[in-house]
Design a protein around this nucleic acid. Structure first.
Lengths: 133, 133
DNA sequence: CCCTGACATTCCAGTCACAGGAAGCCTCTC
DNA sequence: GAGAGGCTTCCTGTGACTGGAATGTCAGGG
């Protein structure tokens, strides 16, 4: 049972203090307050913050994090609800990877054709301008 | 030599009219104005818009697009300058793909372990909460 | 008892690339 | 001349913070 200031919990949860204040603002955590107005972080707050840090690192949106946190706190949850969120997010990640790979393929093809010297001829610019070749 | 209204050029460049107005706001294009205040898009504006559309679709930032457009208009450019921007962007794309693949690997591993039924036991939540197993 | 430096607080503005919507002109057709 | 649709500007909101200003608090040293 350790009570932490925002600076200490920030170090331990590996999150910027600004981010932690923001999470309080939007209602993800509700730390106590000391008589001097300082936030007081209990173990439960610390755990929520590490949970949020990991979920954000996996690319979940804040709203997904809110839902996941609520499920985490709910002893009568159905794991199916959690899995559904995870699967939806996995699909989105796959879509982003596909998009990025398509961009990469197109751009690297153009880039390879560009000799990259002092002359102005540039297949990259030609490709962007829509010229067939 | 065709002069277009914003709606027409939006259709042909396959960009929302809102986006085109925004591009004018930030100085990427400078269409003429008719006596009634309507924007008048020349062929050169249309070409710039398609160029911008393609560059954005490849994930270049607006500032990169601004630079690329300037290079495109500059007959005495060095293709090396274009290629440098492209290579930098390719590196960023690769970094993003790597990040996303790491997220995907972690999350899909957790998700596979979750049976996703009505019971509360959930390896996904356990993973997010930082439990070793 | 005061000073300094490191903390903490709140609040406001900025990021990026638009999207949505309101209020009001312009143009064309019936 | 009435309505539909397109055009204009201006303002706000998005997501998830980040930076900075102005101010308050605390611990230790002179």
């Amino acid at each position: 049972m350790t009570n932490l200031t925002i600076g200490e919990v920030a170090k331990r949860a590996n999150l910027p203090a600004k981010t932690i204040r923001y999470y309080e603002d939007i209602g993800l955590i509700t730390p106590l307050r000391d008589s001097n107005g300082y936030r007081v972080f209990r173990d439960s707050d610390f755990h929520k913050l590490t949970f949020l840090g990991r979920a954000r690192a996996l690319g979940f949106t804040i709203e997904d994090c809110r839902t996941l946190l609520a499920l985490y706190e709910d002893d009568s949850r159905a794991s199916a609800d959690v899995k559904a969120i995870a699967q939806k997010h996995l699909t989105e990640i796959e879509a982003k990877i596909t998009d990025l790979q398509a961009m990469h393929a197109t751009l690297s093809e153009l880039s390879q054709k560009c000799c990259g010297d002092a002359r102005p001829d540039c297949p990259i610019l030609e490709g962007l301008s829509g010229q067939a070749n």
